[in-house]
């Protein structure tokens, strides 16, 4: 079974979201998603300073198998993309909830965070797939 940390929020598109102390949110793809994609070989990050709408594609992750969009879980401004992934995209495979984070966003509307799935909801979603 894939790992689903209890303290994160999730999307139906298999992103995870962590609220940071400074008011930003960190976004990555779940353990389930990285396992389904296989070895990651390239991440196309969004530009810092750009704005994204909820459910808009904001990055692309490419595995040996396929390219997949990463969708912004909420609307916001891109604060930072994980530059380490340029040379080490495999961090998404080895540490999807840690060093394999993809982008940090400053939310436009924090109430959008309430729309996201809980860990329990996400586990159920994965089980039903």
């Amino acid at each position: 079974m894939s790992e689903v940390p209890q303290d994160l929020k999730y999307t139906r598109n298999h992103e995870w979201v962590r609220s940071e102390d400074d008011g930003t949110v960190t976004v990555g793809i779940t353990d389930h998603a990285q396992a389904a994609l296989g070895d990651l070989v390239f991440v196309e990050p969004p530009e810092a300073g750009s704005t994204v709408g909820a459910d808009e594609a904001c990055a692309v992750v490419e595995s040996v198998k396929a390219a997949s969009d990463v969708y912004a879980p909420i609307s916001g401004e891109v604060v930072e993309a994980n530059a380490t992934l340029d040379d080490s995209p495999e961090l998404i495979n080895s540490d999807p909830y840690g060093e394999g984070w993809i982008v940090r966003l400053r939310p436009t509307d924090t109430t959008e965070l309430d729309q996201l799935l809980s860990a329990d909801d996400y586990r159920q979603l994965v089980a039903e797939e």
Partner: peptide, 8 residues
């Protein structure tokens, strides 16, 4: 089998 853990 697609892979056994890591295609690379």
């Amino acid at each position: 089998p697609l892979h056994y853990g890591s295609q690379l």
